[in-house]
Write a protein that binds this DNA or RNA. Structure first.
Lengths: 150, 150
DNA sequence: TATTGTTATACTCTATAACTATA
DNA sequence: TATAGTTATAGAGTATAACAATA
């Protein structure tokens, strides 16, 4: 130790402490890690793939366009993501009989099972947060985040 | 309108509503947009560059290693990011006289001015959130997020 | 041997434009 | 002329391994 500065002292983050974007980005590190441990690594799903499985399960026959708009994913990227889900046998695209431009999305039975299994796994994984948040705090946090997301 | 389904109805997100990761990811869309509008686009800064300017200003002579650990940025990427900040004249690297492997980071006067200006711009931009959150709610939100980030 | 930082490289992710087929 | 979706392509971001210098 040659310096007078304590090299093990935590870095001063005070300038960033009052920006909401920084607080959200740092919390996202934790939740991304929980996702990877509980869902991403064991089931081979990325966050956007997990999210799409849940949304398609709850909204059978929805179109790619609507998913793009909700998740702010550009259409070409959505095509590639859905291609991969389809290749793995979790998803089918059905052409709309009345508007033959549009595709309706549905999960296969295997896709439905994966959607259910992966959601349960994420909920298990996120229960680790009970060590730092009461269930009331957690509910409150989700309500406040929903207001920010509008 | 050929279908019986109401195509303008919002998608059902109920399966995701109780996962914290989804709530955080959706709130991050809002804060990323506020950052881009107020700071990123007008000042030509990416979030990680903005964050590094603030941290180096508050922690003069810190090392790259410590910033990598805090922000979970791999060392090779940190080298490239700092290269760009240095090229733009906002940063200098000084070799440690006692441990000649380590580099200490300092902002130039121009870098200091940019750090201050960009933080003020972000705070202005985030004030738009006052339309959806009271200042008490916002404080509470930041406290809860800090608990999650640990 | 271990650590700080760099170089080289490959891989993924993202964004855009151009295209098709339908309307 | 506009819309849903695809293809092609380029750019940015990210991860890993190998390396140089120093401890």
């Amino acid at each position: 130790m040659s310096s007078t500065r304590d090299k093990s002292a935590p870095l001063d983050q005070s300038r960033l402490a009052h920006t909401l974007g920084y607080a959200i980005a740092r919390a996202a590190v934790t939740t991304n890690q929980l996702f990877a441990q509980g869902v991403g690594d064991p089931l081979g799903l990325r966050p956007v793939e997990f999210t799409l499985l849940q949304l398609i399960l709850s909204n059978p026959a929805t179109t790619q366009k609507r998913l793009c708009d909700l998740l702010r994913v550009p259409a070409p990227q959505m095509t590639l993501i859905l291609d991969r889900l389809q290749e793995r046998g979790w998803l089918v695209r059905e052409r709309d009989a009345n508007d033959r431009r549009a595709l309706h999305l549905r999960l296969t039975p295997a896709g439905t099972r994966l959607a259910e299994k992966s959601l349960a796994a994420l909920q298990d994984s996120e229960q680790a947060l009970e060590q730092v948040l009461t269930s009331g705090e957690r509910l409150l946090l989700q309500e406040l985040l929903a207001k920010v997301a509008r």
